[in-house]
Design a binder for these strands. Structure first.
Lengths: 102, 102
DNA sequence: ACAATATGCAACCAAAAGGCAGCATATAGT
DNA sequence: ACTATATGCTGCCTTTTGGTTGCATATTGT
């Protein structure tokens, strides 16, 4: 059940804010991403690592700073998984509805 | 940040399995949903409650048993949110690509 | 060379989450 | 009526998570 780790990583307000900042390109380094979150730099770094471990964010070191980038492939997996759940659920509901209308 | 609660609810293998079962209509009552998960009935019930609190599952009591149903509206919110993240990220990447190609 | 900046790593702590056993209650089947 | 079934509720325990402080290191700007 790979997907669970992705959702788990997204299931925290601070981590979700990080992803939001990355998606809008408001921050691109660890330092920038860690500011104004209401927690310490080290705390923020720990949260970022959760995103990295879930393959939602990727790190690239450049000199003394480290660039952070989103991995949209991973996000797509999550999105597709939910879409599939919805389709399966609705398909059966529609089948039932059709049956009742006959 | 409402979305975080939805992802948090989906971010556990057992809860995700429950959602999967519901989506494929393999189980529809609390009892059926709680079997063969590797944990006790009480444990499963607690996990189910997380899905209910996140508005991913709904409960409807019928006599001595309780029906469980998915709330696809909530799932759609999660799906749309990820789609938006991807679009924002890619839009800027494409803009950069265009700029470099000029 | 020196100071400032960007980051890493480990130890520690409190709170939340995940899971269990035990007991109670209401409904359904015989 | 009696038994089995479906479920609820509470208290307890262990593990995980979210966060901190303190200290170390490497790179950059002056």
């Amino acid at each position: 059940m790979i997907e669970a780790e992705i959702y788990k990583a997204l299931g925290d307000p601070i981590r979700l804010e990080m992803v939001r900042r990355l998606s809008t390109h408001q921050s691109s380094t660890i330092g920038a991403l860690s500011k104004n979150l209401g927690i310490s730099r080290q705390g923020a770094r720990k949260q970022l690592q959760v995103l990295v471990d879930a393959n939602i964010a990727r790190l690239t070191q450049q000199g003394r700073e480290t660039q952070v980038a989103l991995d949209t492939h991973t996000l797509k997996i999550a999105q597709d998984f939910i879409a599939k759940l919805e389709r399966q659920w609705d398909a059966r509901l529609n089948a039932l509805k059709t049956l009742l209308e006959e």
